[in-house]
Amino acid sequence: MAGNESSLLTVRDVDVRFAKARTLADIVLRRPAAAVHAVASASLELRPRETLGLVGESGSGKTTLGRAILQLHPVAGGEIRYRGRSVHDPMPDWQRRLRREMQMVFQDPYSSLNPRLTVTQTLGEVLRFHRIVPDAGVAAEVARLLDVVGLPRSMADRLPRAMSGGQRQRVGLARALAVRPTLLVLDEPVAALDVSIQAQILNLLSDLRAEFGLAMLFVAHDLSVVRHVSDRVAVMYRGRLVELGTREEIFLRPAHPYTRMLLAAVPQIVARKRVRPVQAATDMNAAVVGGCPFAPRCPQAVDRCREQVPATAVLSETHSAACHFAAT
């Protein structure tokens, strides 16, 4: 086993760009595609058995980064290492191993399952393809997986359309667990579910994590959910990682103004009506040219913020923030 055990996954200075579609003329003339920066020099680390929450609003690049780790998006720069070895190393054995060790759970329980395959077919295909159990043991293993995710065995022959959102999400989890992974990337796994069902799935996740020693990268926009599941939290804004810290650091001592703004905006079940100041609209479509990407919305922004991209300030061994004023 290569690499050091303290870090399971290392993401260093990763850039992901979305190309605008190239025309045939572009391809013939070898013109490069116009690119939009979806993720810009993101660095983070995931340790074994740890849950890292990745939060941000739409367009922050959190989903893209999660997908890039699973090679669902090509990476334009930087490196992603799993157990010390690049995930882009094309050796077939390594790639096959990665496919078993890193798995993904998707947001939309309606589109994440093939509508034409029953639960048994979906899970059976994975088990056979990766030879997780001998063919004769597939049925028993499917039953075991259903037990693990808390689905009655009577669901085995159902098609996705005959199941509720929560039940489908459990099937999606079972599919990811079928290969017995070490690392799960969960992309908004509870965002599409009602709150009572969401709580069932969150509890299931914490049970699975304890039982199988899973490391998780938990991508979500809902801060209260992230606070509930995460050991450490990374905050993204417009493709950049703006703050990284332990749960306590992020939620009790946020250093980046964006994190503070996010936290203040979360609606809480308080027994009193809240008075909020009315603000002018923020145009999220407006391009940011140079400087800190958050500067146009930042209540503390000064000229320097609009001119100079802030470096990452290290606040403690575990806490860092990309703000000129983080340390002050």
Partner: peptide, 24 residues
């Protein structure tokens, strides 16, 4: 009450949520 207990809170940390069992 079930809705309130199912929701993760920002002001306190619970190891486990108390979901409403079953389906609507």
């Amino acid at each position: 009450l079930g809705l309130m207990r199912s929701s993760p809170r920002m002001d306190e940390h619970a190891e486990r949520l108390q979901p409403i069992p079953g389906q609507p």
